[in-house]
Design a protein around this nucleic acid. Structure first.
Lengths: 197, 197
DNA sequence: ACCGGAATTGAACACTGATCAATTAAAATA
DNA sequence: TATTTTAATTGATCAGTGTTCAATTCCGGT
């Protein structure tokens, strides 16, 4: 069939993304399939390829959406009048990953082919998550050391990410660690203290 | 055909593991396949399933082998008369991951089904990597705080893991970070200093 | 020479990502 | 309105995957 009047190209892209995101949350990266998304929205497989160009770009778009949900989750955690905004960030990182396990792991399960760069639009949207943390770290640092905030923030995200990964993939449990969140917060506090001193 | 006199069951298991490991290093987790392993060793697919029981257990065995190579790599790095054994560990963590990218990522790409636990034998062998770090951290800590070593070591591994992940998946480069190794070492030093003080 | 048991096979099944000639419908033109 | 042009959509087709298991093949022991 030809053009369908009931969906503009942009609407169709949104429809695919919405359903793709839903399926990813439901079955996870390993069982995700373009065919199943197509079936659920009533289009043929080929249409998904026409709209997104490839399986990799579809996955990249879905995961970018997850990044945005994640950043929104952090911002929401920060609206509560919490004294400790840093602890709130770390907790938010963990709780999003735990509550959206399939979506969260898909971000790191998926790798673009070596010869394909992440499209700029997607990369920028993903950066929003980092921006939140940079802003909060900058607010903690003394004014004369504000310029260190981006680098330190990236490093703290990596620290928290490592702890979150091991917490959710069972590594910590296997080693007898039962409080990975506290561990992560302790490490972040140490690094912030060192930066302030 | 029936039993082949040229391979005992244990030898066959080793043969599969060896070739599987080779293929994983060559093509990575996403393009790995049991069929291809079978073809390369001159057996049929079914034989791999008879020996390992399932695709997941085959992958778990291959990744466990990678853990052992990784631990050996760390030990080797420690034999050089380096003053800074902690820096050597972090560098070893990074260099193994960088030099064996496909093998390293396969460890974290693969997840056992939720209802299947990691076989004890494999879990114990994987623990060897952690043991190396625990030993080195204990050697740094004051005698009265030796008991903190396991917990701190796990946390430092998580910290380094996060930095290594972002270094190799392009996150750091995308954010303008060019020295992730130095960043990781700095974080580890801060945490060790805090533990000693 | 025979047999019972164990190892090995590979066709069969239900799925996957990817492609692209053919089809269809909407838009533009006459 | 009738016709052409253009763009969206299809789905059969291809080469591949994990998984199963009846059938086959071989070996050690009688």
């Amino acid at each position: 069939m030809g053009r369908r009047s009931d969906h503009s190209r942009a609407e169709l892209e949104g429809l695919i993304l919405e359903e793709g995101h839903r399926l990813m949350a439901e079955v996870g990266f390993a069982r995700f399939s373009a065919r199943e998304v197509a079936k659920r929205i009533g289009y043929a497989v080929g249409t998904l390829y026409n709209v997104f160009g490839s399986y990799d770009l579809l996955l990249a778009a879905i995961n970018t959406r997850t990044f945005e949900l994640w950043a929104a989750h952090l911002e929401e955690r920060l609206t509560s009048p919490s004294t400790d905004r840093i602890a709130a960030l770390v907790q938010g990182y963990f709780s999003f990953a735990a509550d959206n396990f399939n979506l969260w792991t898909a971000i790191y399960d998926h790798r673009l082919p070596a010869d394909m760069a992440m499209p700029d639009t997607l990369a920028i949207r993903r950066g929003g998550l980092t921006d939140v943390v940079v802003r909060e770290v900058a607010a903690i640092l003394p004014h004369e050391t504000h310029h260190q905030a981006p680098r330190l923030a990236r490093s703290l995200i990596a620290t928290v990410h490592g702890h979150c990964t091991f917490a959710l993939n069972g590594s910590f449990l296997l080693l007898g660690e039962t409080e990975p969140l506290e561990l992560a917060i302790a490490r972040v506090r140490e690094s912030l203290s060192a930066a302030i001193a």
